[in-house]
Write a protein that binds this DNA or RNA. Structure first.
Lengths: 105, 105
DNA sequence: CTTTAATGCAACTCTATGGTTGCAATATCC
DNA sequence: GGATATTGCAACCATAGAGTTGCATTAAAG
């Protein structure tokens, strides 16, 4: 449950092209070749991005005949969101406590 | 409220050093110089990271005498988390619907 | 007003990575 | 089984960015 495990996920989400891939996959599974037809980058570039996304646990490969489709994993996103929220809340809680103490002096 | 606006935030969160800065700030405001004393990088490197974090709306500068302290903004994190969660849920919802249809054939 | 501690700015290095082209390998479908 | 579509791998280029050192600037504090 360390923050370190989250870093690759955020790094993966910190790229415009990867978001276009993710949102495209959000409408249904697709292969790298299929994605290359509707995005302005080559299939090979997309394949690299998919590898990054898979490493981050954001997508999952699914064999479908002779093509390799990818499915987006919304649950991983929601999971990350929950942890983010907790961290942010903790920061604000702690800083508010410090302010309390400072004002009581 | 587009996804594009989120990308810089994730890019900012996709770096180990910036997370050590953020967690350090989570314990209380601090200046770049102060942070440099407890992290294994130079003050100038930290200053650059703080600029990135400020651009992403994750920290805020606060003048305190002759030093420039930075305060972490947990609310921005929680906000981002809420949006992430909604996106993930939407993906799963849509893919589940597609599966429904496929199975009903 | 002078000392001094803090920040700001600039130039530079090095590596990671997003992107490309080209070709090999695979496996499906007829 | 052979033609063809799809994926996999490798080399390569260019740029962004994480980090450094060095110096200028600013403004408290005495």
């Amino acid at each position: 449950m360390s923050i370190a495990a989250l870093v690759p996920v955020f790094a993966a989400l910190g790229d415009e092209t990867r978001w276009s891939i993710l949102t495209a996959l959000g409408e249904g599974e697709a292969s790298a070749s299929a994605l290359a037809e509707r995005l302005p980058v080559t299939r090979q570039a997309i394949a690299k991005h998919l590898a990054v996304l898979q490493q981050a646990g954001l997508v999952e490969p699914v064999r479908a005949g002779r093509e390799l489709r990818f499915r987006v994993l919304g649950a991983q996103l929601s999971d990350t969101a929950r942890r983010l929220d907790r961290i942010g809340a903790e920061w604000d809680r702690r800083l508010a406590a410090i302010k309390e103490i400072a004002e009581s002096l």
